[in-house]
Design a binder for these strands. Structure first.
Length: 378
DNA sequence: TCTGGGGTCCTAGGACCC
DNA sequence: TCTGGGGTCCTAGGACCC
């Protein structure tokens, strides 16, 4: 039996900004793109709990957030503080959290900038009282929470369970600053009354599909056989069959490597101005290549681009080169060759304006020398 | 209200090789 | 002359997550 914890930072970006500047204390804060007086095109990245009282939340269009802020102001409430995303700062904080967790757990998986899994099974040595192990895990998590609060002045929520799925869901049930233990052997019961949307991997589309079958809460999933769920959702249906019963054997993955490096940009105004598009595209390529150099990867083999038109139709094209390369010119030229058809009649016959362009590289190889050694061995 | 930017994983179809 | 099937690589698109 494993004891797995999931730690999820509370409104991470906004909390860090609030903790970093005393003048923001207690105010509604929204981190995201520039609202530009209600004309901005982005979305909210993170809103703190005060801003959530205004109806502002992650992924909300920034223009709507601006409107909500103005409305609150008219009612005599404080205006929302809109702040740009400061990744450097958040990455630093994330690394500090990682360091604190690592002191208490040998096996850990950073799942994102603000989420971490770690294994506390060691607190229940073989042959010892299992309940004691869970108690010890709780004590360790309390310590971790306290250390994070002391050092970073922000809170987090932690879930403890017998696998990653249960731990993650448990952490989400009591935010902010929660600590929830989903007792071993009670996994099925813990989940049964929750809406299916609580299961990671079920988004709007899958939810709708399942609703059509009369499935609303997790318990409802259990009325369907493995075969039924496979027919409905393919391979993911088999996963769902197990997840609905609280079963999840997936291991913690300590050394996950990136599979691609890419960047995209949305224009302030939709455009077909070649010079402007070319300039932005060139900067994207330069920035992606710079990150490639810093990444430690030695080569890439596939170049891809994205074009989003003003009607939100989105096209991607990719080209895998004959040979791996690390050449910047090759990267830029291949990317440009993929982009050009979208600027003229070839792939844009109705001359639709372009909203966004993006570029990425994939098929990254970590270490060419290692690869060569393997070839010699074979 | 009009929809960011960073990613991952899965699927389906076509090309190609044996 | 007609007809396999398996395996792998590649591309495009979709769903999802933070």
């Amino acid at each position: 039996m494993r004891i797995i914890a999931h730690l999820d930072m509370d409104a991470f970006f906004a909390s860090l900004e609030e903790a970093g500047s005393p003048i923001f204390k207690g105010l509604p804060i929204a981190v995201g793109s520039d609202p530009k007086g209600g004309l901005g095109r982005g979305v909210i990245s993170t809103a703190n709990y005060k801003a959530r009282e205004y109806g502002i939340h992650s992924a909300l269009p920034i223009s709507e957030a601006w409107r909500l802020s103005q409305k609150a102001k008219a009612e005599g409430k404080p205006e929302v503080v809109f702040l740009p995303v400061d990744f450097e700062r958040y990455n630093k904080a994330s690394a500090q959290v990682l360091e604190i967790i690592r002191k208490h757990a040998k096996i850990m998986e950073p799942a994102s900038i603000d989420e971490f899994y770690f294994d506390l099974s060691y607190s229940a040595p073989l042959g010892r009282d299992c309940a004691l192990g869970w108690k010890k895990a709780e004590v360790i998590c309390k310590k971790i929470k306290k250390e994070i609060k002391d050092k970073l002045k922000v809170t987090c929520s932690v879930g403890i369970g017998s696998n990653k799925l249960i731990a993650k869901i448990a952490a989400g049930t009591k935010k902010p600053d929660g600590l929830v233990i989903a007792e071993e052997g009670q996994e099925g019961k813990f989940l049964e009354l929750m809406p299916i949307r609580e299961l990671p991997g079920i988004g709007p589309k899958t939810e709708e599909k399942l609703n059509q079958q009369g499935i609303k809460i997790i318990k409802d999933v259990r009325k369907f056989s493995r075969e039924d769920l496979y027919d409905l959702l393919g391979k993911w249906g088999l996963d769902l069959y197990l997840k609905a019963r609280g079963i999840d054997d997936s291991p913690l993955e300590e050394n996950r490597e990136a599979k691609s490096i890419g960047e995209q940009a949305t224009f302030q105004h939709d455009t077909l101005n070649f010079i402007y598009i070319g300039e932005v595209f060139d900067n994207l390529c330069k920035s992606v290549f710079k990150r490639f150099l810093q990444s430690g990867f030695k080569t890439f083999k596939t170049v891809g681009i994205t074009v989003r038109f003003s009607d939100f139709e989105t096209k991607t094209t990719a080209k895998t080169l004959k040979k791996e390369t690390k050449n910047e010119k090759e990267f830029t030229i291949e990317a440009l060759k993929l982009l050009l058809p979208y600027l003229d009649k070839r792939k844009n016959p109705h001359k639709k304006l372009i909203r966004l362009i993006g570029v990425k590289m994939s098929c990254l190889s970590a270490d060419r020398e290692k690869l060569n050694n393997q070839n010699i061995l074979i």
